[in-house]
Amino acid sequence: MVKNSRRKNYQSLIFLLVFMLVILSGCGASASSSSSEGGMPEVIRIGIMPSEEGEMNRSQEQLAADITEATGIPAEIFVAEDYNMVIEALRAGKIEIGLIGPFGYIIATERADAKLLVRSESDQQSNTVILVRNDSPYQSVEDLKGKDFLFADPASTSGNLYPRATLMKELGLTNEELDSFFGSVAFSGGHDKSLLALANGNADAIGTSSLMVPMMAESGLVKEEDFRVIAESDPIVGGAPLLYRQDLPEELVTQLRELMLEYDTKNPKFLESVGAARFVEGSDSDFDPIRQVAKDLDMSPEELLSK
């Protein structure tokens, strides 16, 4: 069942503590933060979000293998419970690379001094959609008053930032008023989890990426015809950024960037799993539209994370 947001935030804190303790305690020598001569890390650890879909898990494992081959340094995948854990692990120096959303990028650059390695680019325009089950009676966001709503992740662009902005615009409410409009508001921990919760009747509506339903339908986990869009946002720009710890040697950063810029030919399944066609070189200004949406919500990243 959908839990209230306070309980979910408490659980996320517990998950974060466990995640950090596991890394700090080592999980073996490979989780050490020590570096070899020349400042190169002994292990390249990649923070990434969990997936319900087996093909994506395999493509993540292939990512680690490809990084190992390109750099000569063993690479490992560390699965985080949410974007905030990726950000905190980057800040603590416990991972070297993190894949996160555009809004997460803004938080990570401010909080963890992380740097942009590359960003994803898609041939499809994406945005946020407010979804209900096709057999539900809800025809508009106004019909959701007193119902259970599910966001994906506090640091998610298409799973929190844009859905909030869309709901505020449609309902004429402030961000402070939004949560009390619903019967309950919670975070699922991921877009796939939100969609499965909706499909299973554990939420009345969700905010998620427009690419999520066809992506999960292709894997056979859901059917597209089981869902209905009742509102949608403006297009999302910026792409999913791949970040690196700011103290990594420039030689290693160059090796990683060269690998990722050609990754559409090496591991297209991984790119598909993040709704992208390729990685491209990006700049900090690419994310200015996301900053503007956050500003329009009249809330700092820290306040949005605490929702």
Results as ranks from 00 to 15, higher is better:
A165L: 04
T166V: 03
T166W: 10
M168L: 07
K169C: 03
E170M: 00
G172P: 08
G172V: 10
G172R: 13
L173C: 02
T174R: 06
N175G: 14
E177T: 08
E177C: 06
E177G: 14
E177K: 15
L178F: 05
L178Q: 05
L178E: 05
F181W: 15
F181M: 12
F181Y: 15
F182S: 02
F182E: 04
G183N: 14
G183H: 15
S184M: 11
V185D: 03
A186P: 00
S188G: 08
S188D: 02
G189Y: 08
G190V: 01
G190W: 06
H191Q: 11
D192L: 02
K193R: 12
S194W: 05
S194R: 05
L196C: 01
L196K: 03
A197G: 04
A197E: 06
N200M: 11
G201V: 05
G201W: 04
G201A: 01
N202C: 07
N202K: 15
A203G: 10
A205H: 13
A205Q: 12
G207Q: 04
G207K: 06
T208S: 10
S209M: 05
L211R: 15
M212T: 15
P214G: 00
E218N: 12
S219Q: 12
L221A: 06
L221K: 09
V222A: 01
E225Q: 06
F227D: 03
F227H: 06
I230S: 09
E232M: 11
E232Y: 13
P235E: 07
V237M: 09
G238D: 13
G238A: 13
G238E: 14
A240G: 12
A240V: 13
A240H: 14
A240N: 15
P241T: 07
L243W: 01
L243E: 04
Y244G: 07
R245F: 01
R245A: 08
R245L: 02
D247A: 09
D247S: 12
D247G: 09
D247C: 07
D247M: 05
D247I: 04
D247P: 07
D247H: 10
L248P: 06
P249V: 00
E250A: 15
L252I: 00
